[in-house]
Design a protein around this nucleic acid. Structure first.
Length: 419
RNA sequence: GGGGGAAUGUCCCGAGCGGCAAAGGGGACGGACUGUAAAUCCGUUGGCGUACGCCUUCGCAGGUUCGAGUCCUGCUUCCCCCA
């Protein structure tokens, strides 16, 4: 990992120049492999939820660059490992997902990948599920063929394990075995798909290296590891959480508008970094945007939002989100693209408590919270601050277009319509 | 196997003479200031009700008590020491 290393391959150069590179097992060797011909690489994804969130986006972008530079990407679904159930966390009854649920999650997650990767053509992406091989493993053979290559002493020394033990968090045997399963995945993928590179977040380093080790002992070709930094904002917060919760990638969980807003609200200090990681703008263009200072940097944020949203939701959706945001924030107008809530006309005639409306609109998680929010001056009804959460909202509050504008804070707006 | 300690507000850390919706941080959210930024200051941070109020919370299950996070018994899990 010499800093003056000049990659010759398009892929490694993109990784290095754009800031995806955190650690690599053998950068020069990997670069040479890319120069020699197409490389197949994979990233593993959990399928415990029906969607991935922005935390996974860096690695998705890495796969995209991989394909874009003429190589073969494999997003691997962790259906097998999910079937075991993730025992992390303390005492919550671990929810074992049914096979059907896992399949549904996989299908849903695949939609996201279809936006970023091409599943046809010369360097078609494939999306295998590690259940295909993990569920067929036999305990004794497993111990004999794979288990003997692992040293518990060594496993205990891994950062992920060590911190867990130090923090006195329970770590079940199952979880301890994830490392082994993941290492085996790598070997299996190299066997099945000629995959020689595993990428992932920096927290995966130990697991990936275990896979390389295992591969060497089991006679796989030379395998490589490449990790990216974990995504945090400059102020140190883990990225991907907003008021509404996680920033999911599936459109049915987080709309293009909200997604656009998420990027628009990037901290100044992160803009350049994010432009490199989450857009495909040329570096000189990014360098130009990076120079914008003071309030002008907002222009760069809009570009970031436009580009990032276009990648996930398409250019049209990005433009719409951009226009809706411009209208709402810069011109004080509202468009139909803002989030909305339909309310029964009859109940509006009778009057609905403001707090109830705010809670129903998803701007607060309970009426009590909504009331407190109002008390603190955080609720706006048609742009007027409304501190009384018990105030009744009626049809009289509708504007000429038949819409009531409800806002929590300055950024979260919901349009209420009567139906 | 023996001995000692621990588990608290469902984000985390953490105080808690038997009257407790439970100190204090961090985080998060809101307000002011700004540029839909950061920093700073202020406020909020169990649910339901218009309200005196009602309900649900301190590892789990019982018990003592008018009253239990707090005392007793059993259980679970974790940490430390001795074997």
């Amino acid at each position: 990992m010499t800093s003056d290393f000049k990659p010759r391959s398009d892929f490694v150069r993109a990784m290095v120049e754009r800031g995806y590179m955190h650690q690599c097992s053998d950068l020069e060797g990997l670069d040479a492999a890319f120069v020699a011909g197409p490389v197949t690489a994979y990233v593993g994804y959990d399928c415990t939820a029906s969607s991935l969130h922005v935390g996974s986006l860096i690695s998705i972008m890495m796969l995209r660059w991989l394909q874009k530079t003429g190589n073969n990407p494999i997003p691997l679904m962790g259906g097998g490992t999910t079937r075991v159930g993730d025992p992390s966390g303390k005492d919550e009854t671990r929810k074992l997902l049914s096979v059907e649920a896992i399949e549904a999650n996989k299908a849903s997650i695949r939609q996201v990948f279809e936006n970023f990767l091409d599943f046809g053509g010369a360097h078609a992406a494939v999306m295998p599920d590690n259940a295909e091989w993990l569920t067929k493993l036999n305990w004794i053979e497993m111990l004999r063929d794979i288990g003997r290559h692992f040293s518990v002493n060594r496993m205990l020394s891994f950062e992920s394990v060590k911190t867990r033990l130090e923090r006195e968090q329970e770590m079940s045997f199952i979880e301890f075995n994830y490392m082994i399963l993941q290492a085996y995945d790598f070997v299996e993928l190299s066997r099945r798909h000629g995959c020689t590179l595993q990428m992932g977040g920096s927290d995966q380093w130990g697991n990936i290296v275990s896979g390389i080790d295992l591969g060497r002992r089991m006679g796989s070709p030379q395998l490589y590891a490449l990790t990216c930094p974990l995504l945090t904002t400059s102020s140190g917060a883990k990225m991907g959480k907003t008021a509404a919760g996680a920033v999911w990638l599936n459109a049915d969980l987080v709309s293009a508008y909200d997604y656009w807003q998420f990027w628009r609200n990037t901290e100044d200090a992160d803009v350049a970094k994010f432009l490199r990681l989450f857009t495909e703008l040329p570096l000189d263009e990014i360098a130009r945007l990076e120079k914008l200072a003071g309030a002008e940097i907002n222009e760069a944020k809009k570009v970031l939002a436009d580009e990032a949203t276009a990648l996930l939701h398409g250019r049209d959706a990005a433009n719409q989100a951009s226009a809706a945001s411009k209208a709402a924030f810069e011109e004080g107008r509202m468009t139909g693209d803002l989030p909305s809530l339909d309310v029964d006309r009859a109940s509006l005639e009778a009057g609905v408590q403001l707090a109830a409306l705010v809670a129903d609109a998803g701007l607060a998680s309970s009426r009590g919270e909504a009331r407190r929010l109002a008390q603190g001056g955080g609720v706006r009804l048609n742009d007027r601050q409304e501190t009384d959460g018990q105030r009744l909202v009626t049809l009289a509050d509708m504007d000429a277009d038949g819409v009531i504008k409800l806002a929590a804070g300055k950024k979260k707006i919901v349009l209420v319509r009567a139906v």
